[in-house]
Design a protein around this nucleic acid. Structure first.
Length: 260
DNA sequence: ATGGTAGAAAATCTA
C-alpha cells in the first residue's frame, strides 16, 4: 500500500501537476493540504477519472484538506467533532477516512506565524486538541496514519540552518514537544524508519530567495503511524522532482510504502 | 529595517 501526502498550495492552481504526479507516482492513498477550495469546487471528477474516490473538507479561500483513495474510502469525518473546541474554529484542517482497513488522517496544522503571538499560542492548543481527539477516537493498536503538513520540524537536522530559525516558529521546544506527545501516545515518524541517519530531507522550501535551489528547506510534512503500520514500512521518499519545473507547490510530496 | 515569491482575492492577507 502506497500512502502519500502533499501540501499543494491551491489545488486550483496545481491540478494539472497533481494529476500528472498521481499518474506516475501511483499512490493508493493521497492526502492533500491547502486545497484552498470550497467543497463544491473540489475536482472530484478529475480524480475519479484517474480511478480515485475522494473526500474533501474545504472552506474556500484558505486551508482545505482531502483524501484520495483507490483502495476504498469509508467512514469519512472532518474536524475534531463537537466534543472538542477547536482554537482555529472554522478552519478546514482535518479530514479522516478508512482506506483498506487503515485509518487515515490528513492534517494541516496551523502555521503559528510569529513567536510570541496569539496565533502561535493557538497552534499549541490545536496540537493539544489533536492529541485529545486521537486519544478519544483511536487506540495505539489501530492501523492508523496521521500525515500532512505539521508545520513543525521535529529535529535540528530537519532544517537547513538552526541559526536562521532562531526565534521562529516550527522549531520551538513546545512545538516539538507536541510531536513528542503524539509519539509517546503510540505514533512514530514512519519516514525515519527508512532514513534513520540522513539529515536535511526537506519537504518544504520557501518560494523566495531561490531557497529550493539553494537547499534552504525544512522537513515539516510528516507521516506519523502506529506500530502496526510503521513496522511494515518498506520504502519512503520525498519526491523533490515535484518541487521543480513550472508552477510547483512550495512543498514536495512525501511517500511511504507499507506491506500490510 | 524586514527582505524575497506565490496564491488567494480585489486592499492586503497568508504562508
Amino acid at each position: 500500500m502506497r500512502i502519500a501526502t502533499w501540501n499543494v498550495n491551491s489545488l486550483k492552481a496545481r491540478l494539472p501537476r497533481v494529476e500528472e504526479w498521481i499518474e506516475y507516482a501511483q499512490p493508493d492513498v493521497l492526502c492533500l493540504q491547502e486545497t484552498k477550495l470550497a467543497d463544491k469546487a473540489f475536482p472530484a471528477m478529475a480524480f475519479s477519472a484517474l480511478g480515485y474516490e475522494s473526500a474533501h473538507h474545504g472552506q474556500g479561500q484558505w486551508n482545505g484538506v482531502a483524501i484520495l483513495s483507490r483502495v476504498g474510502i469509508e467512514d469519512v469525518t472532518s474536524g475534531f467533532g463537537d466534543a472538542f473546541i477547536d482554537p482555529y474554529e472554522g478552519d478546514a484542517r482535518v479530514i479522516s477516512a478508512t482506506c483498506s482497513g487503515v485509518r487515515v488522517v490528513s492534517v494541516y496544522v496551523p502555521n503559528g506565524r510569529e513567536v510570541p503571538s496569539d496565533f502561535y499560542d493557538r497552534k499549541l492548543v490545536w496540537f493539544e486538541r489533536l492529541s485529545e481527539w486521537i486519544d478519544a477516537t483511536c487506540t495505539p493498536s489501530d492501523q492508523l496514519v496521521i500525515l500532512g503538513d505539521f508545520n513543525v520540524a521535529p529535529e535540528d537536522r530537519d532544517v537547513w540552518s538552526m541559526d536562521s530559525f532562531e526565534g521562529s516558529t516550527h522549531v520551538t521546544g513546545p512545538e516539538r514537544a507536541a510531536i513528542t506527545t503524539l509519539e509517546e501516545w503510540g505514533l512514530e515518524d514512519a519516514f525515519r524508519r527508512i532514513y534513520p541517519d540522513t539529515d536535511h530531507l526537506f519537504s518544504y522550501w520557501d518560494y523566495r530567495r531561490g531557497d529550493f535551489h539553494q537547499g534552504r528547506g525544512m522537513r515539516i510534512d510528516l507521516v506519523l503511524a502506529t506500530a502496526s503500520v510503521a513496522d511494515h514500512v518498506t520504502w519512503a521518499l520525498v519526491d523533490r522532482n515535484a518541487r521543480k519545473g513550472t508552477q510547483p507547490s512550495d512543498h514536495a510530496p512525501v511517500i511511504i510504502d507499507v506491506d500490510l
